[in-house]
Write a protein that binds this DNA or RNA. Structure first.
Lengths: 359, 359
DNA sequence: TTTTAGCAGTCAACACATGAGAGTGCTAAT
DNA sequence: ATTAGCACTCTCATGTGTTGACTGCTAAAA
């Protein structure tokens, strides 16, 4: 159910903090996420019932700073969580936020509204996520592996060009145009196509490779480069194709966040969205894990992204992770809410792809 | 050839300026576009050989300001072109900039590299344009009207769902999934499909409507709602579908421009990109004109866009305007260069779509 | 009559000083 | 071990010159 949030690997020697430190760290993170202002000892004791005086809190905060859980922007400011502080919060302190029924409903309907097109469903999932989180959301369409072959259409365009449309149980899953060096005969193409459809229908795409295709087209031969291109399509090796199937949006939400008033960060993010590679990589990594992955600040590996965090989560087709989606926002994001939201969107997508076979 | 730049309608009573005013206005615009700094009388006489003293220039500039061609940010600043000043410059003073051979070559190869997929070609056109102009570029795929029917594929998914792929002389031109209320028989579907293909191949999509489809499927009947959905596809009435076929990119370039250091403008533009409707409308309007259209500042009709300009241009399929592309940038954009560039990209796209039929 | 030099006036931008406010660390008392 | 009290530090907002760029105006020159 994608609820058992597994996150980034813990630093192996992450110690456990005592009860009072834990409580103070948690409160600081909570308050800072809520207000965006560095939080001081007085604020803390006034707003939250900690049972100790500001002076004690000060001492504890100083200790937490020494241990690297808190930062101090300058001497006379309050404390701000460090990456490590957020990490501790996310790994141990966070409690999942309950998503309101109307939001759950919105997610479901938005995704189902677009269910007729595979791409649209994922696109809508990304959209609804960016709207609900007021952050950047991104998502990638499912890998072909787990889908089952339904129909292949080879469409003759001219003697040297063939359009290919692959339909799986999930819908139109891939399409491309292939240029062949040798000439293709339209009738021959139709026969090969029918042959393949007869033999492959219902089969998992996982099992289809060059050898199998060559074998199946022995009696209804096709140009070698066409067969290879088809195999390439099935195994999704065509990188350019992959990129087009990543959806991202919500950049306009950035400007709400005070941390993005910095043009360096802003530019870094816009470039990230433009090139897509990094987003794609994050999602691929997420496929390796069960449940959500959270990356905080420097963990993203880019100095320009130090003020950002990313939450990613895979969704399933059949029983395997097939695609993923994520949210990119300020490091000071509402982790609890976002984790619940991405979880819910991922579940909805998984459910959609599970139910697809029957009308 | 898209070279005879027709722009926005001139204000009906736009007077002609005398030689010296013209020269000064032109120089101010040129200098301001180059530097981004308000230009003063001294700068002008020093950098350009005007043959008069700063005092004279001052008098002329004051007059130009009275007439609305120039603005003065504040009393002790130089002059800046007003919308009207830019308009006069674009309409009368501009001389087309010659595009370097390596840039022309880049455009051609980028567009041809992606020629196998209709969408890709347009996407790449938009990309190359945004890279060369360092602004936001956007483009829409060609309307179906002028394309000729090549092949329709109706793919049976389940008794109540059919995938549709439409291939024209330009490639895969449209596709969708249709849910039918009454059941569809797979064999029946295949027969209808073959029938349609036999009858419609080579025909202009312009001529295909509901009546024709109903007539052609009389002997190989299909559910009424399926026929209607098909007709809708041919005439591209499905709005949601249309939106997905607009490509836009280059938002990261914004931050180079000093005028976008203002968050209001920035946000307005990011929202524009997100919703796509306005971009789409601009492009549709551009379809009505031959050659490029320039919209400057307030002409865009949004207060948040007062610091922006847009250049759009249609491209052709056959002999009719079928799609369009454009650039959105600061009002202080290099109009001469941009006009040449969009013209060239449009020509390249047109050429691609002209040549497509033969391999 | 048109152009120009000279000059006073205006305004943004920058640097700098000043004070208020928030929050700390330290110390001595509880 | 905790807390009250206090001196200290640093940011931020505000205010005040000072500088520099450019103008408009006027009176002289062409």
């Amino acid at each position: 159910m994608a609820k058992d949030n597994k996150k980034e690997p813990l630093p192996p020697d992450e110690p456990e903090l005592d009860r009072r430190k834990t409580s103070i760290l948690g409160t600081v993170v909570y308050e800072y996420i809520a207000t965006g202002e560095p939080v001081g000892s007085a604020t803390l004791t006034q707003k939250y019932n900690l049972g100790v005086s500001p002076a004690t809190v000060r001492a504890e905060m100083a200790a937490l700073e020494d241990e690297g859980y808190l930062d101090q922007p300058h001497t006379s400011a309050g404390r701000v969580p460090s990456d490590r502080g957020y990490r501790y919060y996310v790994d141990r302190l966070i409690q999942p936020e309950v998503i309101g029924v109307e939001e759950r409903e919105l997610i479901r309907t938005e995704i189902h509204r677009a269910r007729t097109q595979l791409d649209s469903a994922v696109d809508h999932a990304s959209h609804v996520l960016s709207n609900l989180t007021r952050n950047i959301a991104f998502a990638v369409v499912p890998r072909l592996d787990n889908q089952t072959y339904r129909h292949l259409q080879l469409i003759w365009v001219n003697p040297h060009r063939v359009h290919v449309v692959l339909v799986t149980d999930l819908g139109i899953a891939a399409q491309t145009t292939i240029d062949t060096s040798s000439e293709v005969d339209p009738d021959q193409l139709t026969r090969a196509c029918n042959n393949l459809n007869a033999q492959l229908a219902g089969r998992s795409l996982h099992d289809i490779d060059v050898r199998l295709l060559e074998e199946l087209t022995r009696e209804t031969p096709l140009p070698a480069d066409l067969v290879h291109a088809l195999a390439g399509l099935f195994t999704m090796r065509d990188k350019a194709e992959v990129e087009r199937r990543l959806f991202a949006g919500g950049a306009n939400n950035l400007l709400d966040q005070q941390e993005f008033r910095d043009f360096r960060t802003l530019r870094a993010i816009l470039e990230l969205l433009e090139e897509q590679q990094t987003l794609y990589r994050w999602l691929q990594e997420s496929l390796q894990h069960e449940g959500a992955t959270v990356s905080i600040g420097h963990e993203l590996g880019s100095a320009d992204m130090n003020e950002c965090s990313v939450v990613t989560i895979p969704y399933k087709v059949g029983d395997r992770n097939a695609g993923a989606l994520g949210v990119l926002g300020p490091r000071r994001m509402q982790y609890a809410r976002l984790l619940s939201l991405v979880g819910h969107v991922a579940d909805s997508l998984s459910a959609l792809f599970q139910n697809e076979p029957q009308p």
